[in-house]
Design a protein around this nucleic acid. Sequence first.
RNA 1: GGCCCCAUCGUCUAGUGGCCUAGGACAUCACCCUCUCAAGGUGAAGACACGGAUUCGAAUUCCGUUGGGGCUGCCA
Length: 480
Amino acid sequence: MAPRVRFAPSPTGYFHVGSARTALFNWLVARQSGGVMVLRIEDTDATRGRQEWLDGIISALDWLGLQADEGPYLQSAAEPRHRELADKLYDAGYLYACDCPRELIDERTKSNPTPGYDGFCRDRSVPRTDQTGLRFKVPIEGETVVHDVIRGDVVFPHSAMEDFVAVKSSGQPLFALANAIDDRDMEITHIIRGEDLLPTTPKQLLMWEGLDAVDRPVPLPTFAHLPMLVNEQRKKLSKRKDPVAVESYRDQGFLPEAFVNYLALLGWSPEGDREMVSKETLIDEFRLDQVHHAPAFFDVAKLTHMNGDYIRALSPETFIELVQPWVDPDHASWHPEGVELLWPAERYDAERFAAIAPLIQERVTVLGEVPAMVDFLFLVDPPLDESAFEKAVANDPRAIEVLDKAIEVYASCPFTSGALHEATVVLGDALELKLRKTQAPIRVAITGKSVGPPLFESLELLGREEVLRRLSNARERAQG
RNA sequence: GGCCCCAUCGUCUAGUGGCCUAGGACAUCACCCUCUCAAGGUGAAGACACGGAUUCGAAUUCCGUUGGGGCUGCCA
């Protein structure tokens, strides 16, 4: 039977990197076995903004190329079904009504070595009303074993499990119940999710048994609990302190292929010394039972490096196409959030950009770095890095000589990068300067920065007139 | 506190009893290349948490300790 996996995120305002990894591993299992991935939104407690976050989840999955085969289903839509089965479970005695307020439970159990609900109402036959939640009657004896593909058998003694709430007093079934019902109804064969859900799994297993009895027997799915993604403090990634929004990586100019590749390496690794692996390779080689057990630090530095590798591997044409949203938004297919064009749109010159693009391509790690590297080509006067100017021009006694000489030589030499290079070497020789020293003041004069793409190509693209103008300006500024 | 999970370089990992003098990648440092910056090349430094047990032999098996994490809601 072809596997049916599900990716079941709960709605938040953005798409979490941990969710992305979970989605990826689910997707890989589906893809490698001719299975199906269903997308189910666990929104039982959500109240507003549904459409927005649903769009957010779908567009993030799209960006990553992890589209679901079925869904999205909203868990909230199945609430009548959940209620129906909750009633049956109650009628059959798996659930009992409880009217204990939280404070009372805490009061009663605070000195108990095993805090949590003490089963007070278990045999009180509290009548079911709209003031009573329904608790699951966990067997006193025995244990529940979770057979986990990654971790092996995990044993939960019933003595340590409380009679947890399965249905709110409002009548609405809670996660543990709704989740089990949906997985049954959708005939899910593999539950692949974060390790944080491991402790609730025995509850769902117990519930599953009850549902087998009151509804229909459904074979148990295979479980796999993925190790957490953690921050430098080794804590579960926090939405407040850690950069967890997938959208922000997209907006910074990470490539989805690189992102997916990096994510796959968090908890799994291909055979041999490879790290750059395509999605096709992942589909071929990924094995759930090889997933590492320990939590993994989400290392943006490594992701960034890998992204640089992916960028450099692009064809020049593809690179130009992919940077479009950052350099030529008017003609781009989408717009990264929070990105402002550094130059007036009408001054952008596609040909000029195409000419310098290959030199930029090997110097950036994320696409968002591109504009700042080429702004001098599209700005009348690029912003001047004061400290760079100080160092290379103002505080360098030879700088004025260099600029003067450059103005003189550039006025007449052929204006190609090769000739400019040559001319600059000669000009430097005359002043007994290494090219390294000679280029510094010229670079700052032209680009406003001390670092950037190769200088002579830049000069050629800018044109003689503009180059001479900027050199003169810098000269004046140096004197004043 | 209770229950559960986990433990190899700073980080991600390879390693499934002898191939381990523990391999790769990121990060770091040095050198080379070089018009700046990158990229690239070469090299350096850097780990089996600890203690027992099993075994001729343990990073690898078992037990314990320590440490970290997760869960412990009428959230999911």
